[in-house]
Amino acid sequence: MFSVTVKRIGRPSHQAEPSYPEGDGRLILPRPLRRVVRFLVSLGSGRIHIPAHVGTVSALAFFAVTGLYGMSLGGHTDAVAQATTTAAGFAIDDVKVSGNSETSEIEILQLLGLDGTTSLVALDVDAARQKIAKLPWVENVEVRKIYPKTIEVKLKERQAYAIWQHGQELSLVEKGGSVIAPLRDNKFSELPLVVGRGAEVAATSLEAEFAKWPEIKARVKAYVWVSGRRWDLHMDNGIAVKLPEDDVEVALARLSKFMKEQDLLERDIAAVDLRLTDRTAIELTPEAMARRQLVLDQRTKELKKAGQNI
């Protein structure tokens, strides 16, 4: 007779783990390792299908990750990014600079650090903006990428208001008194010259104070700030005009009247003192003083002679 054995296919959902009598010599693996062993057995028997090229792709991914990690450790990430994006056609070959009058384009290019192979993708525009903003004439700056190969730099420059002499140094200053840069040439010779400690700040009011008196302003060679309180005007012919601390407009009106009616600034005088509201003091030059003394002496002699003849 034949015996028939029925073998169930598949694993019941609640199949109990096989138990072995104690001491039978079999090695029982821990539960996590049993799954690994089953996977390796299935892989070796061909029951698990692996798509083609998975090994190649995995190897390339492994080498790529290893290379990126090595570049990061060695600090070469930026260099590799520059080279890669440059080769892809993103090398900067045009820089458009606008709004610059006193700022040199060469200075801007140097700060951008362009060498012919710099990549537009890898360029740090924030760092470039911060560097350019430190240039003396730059008030604010915008740096923008225009793909694929162009950098646009827009500047707004500071405006020179006066030349400030402090000691032996000459500096260009803004209207608020902030120093822009040392004076290097005669390009700004038409600006007013202010002299003395604190003169660069006090000069803010000069434009308004002299707006009504262009004929006086046109003849001022230097504004000298005296004792941190008032101005002395040094005119183009060497005469000094001493203005008061207050009521400057009234003093300038008096000076304008003297200029028109008496040609005061054309006379042989050294200074005009307008500090007192009820009088104007005139200081003669040494030569004029000598001539005046001669006239007085001659008049005294003539008076004595006339007295003797009476």
Rank of each mutant, 00 (worst) to 15 (best):
L29V: 11
V80T: 07
A199E: 02
L33H: 09
T280V: 15
S205M: 10
Q130P: 09
R184S: 15
P244S: 04
I216V: 11
V95T: 09
L233Q: 01
L29H: 08
R291P: 08
L109S: 04
K175G: 14
R275I: 07
W225D: 03
H76N: 14
T103G: 02
D297F: 12
K217G: 10
E169D: 10
V195Y: 02
L243I: 08
S205K: 13
A128C: 10
R299I: 09
A127F: 08
V250T: 15
Q308M: 13
A160E: 00
A240D: 14
S3M: 09
A181V: 11
P214W: 04
K221P: 05
S19K: 13
G67S: 11
K257V: 07
K131T: 05
T204F: 13
Q15R: 12
G99H: 09
D268F: 03
V179E: 05
V153C: 03
T66G: 12
L191Y: 02
P192F: 00
I50M: 07
A203P: 10
R299Q: 13
A88E: 06
L123P: 04
W213A: 07
E17A: 12
K304T: 15
E157Q: 08
S178V: 12
V195T: 05
D94T: 15
L233V: 04
H53R: 07
A253Q: 10
F63E: 06
H53A: 07
H53Y: 09
G238K: 01
P182H: 01
Q293R: 15
N186A: 13
A160I: 03
F90P: 02
P30F: 02
E287K: 13
D273K: 01
M71L: 13
A52G: 07
G70C: 09
Y223E: 00
L294D: 14
R8H: 06
A59E: 11
K131C: 02
L120Y: 02
L112G: 04
T66K: 04
L123Y: 00
L294K: 15
W225Y: 14
V6G: 05
T204Q: 14
V143T: 09
V125R: 08
K149D: 14
R8M: 04
R26G: 04
T103K: 00
D297H: 13
D232Y: 11
K260Q: 11
R229V: 09
D94Y: 10
R184K: 14
I282H: 00
L111F: 06
P136S: 04
A79F: 09
K221R: 14
A202I: 03
E139H: 14
R229D: 06
L135E: 01
V57T: 15
I146V: 15
P214V: 08
P286N: 04
F188H: 10
G10L: 01
V143G: 02
V54E: 09
I151F: 03
V138Y: 00
V179Y: 00
E142Y: 11
T86K: 01
L27Y: 13
D78K: 12
K154M: 11
E266Q: 12
A253N: 09
Q262P: 01
R292Y: 09
A218E: 11
V250G: 05
F188Y: 12
V241D: 02
R47F: 07
L191H: 00
E200Q: 15
Q168G: 10
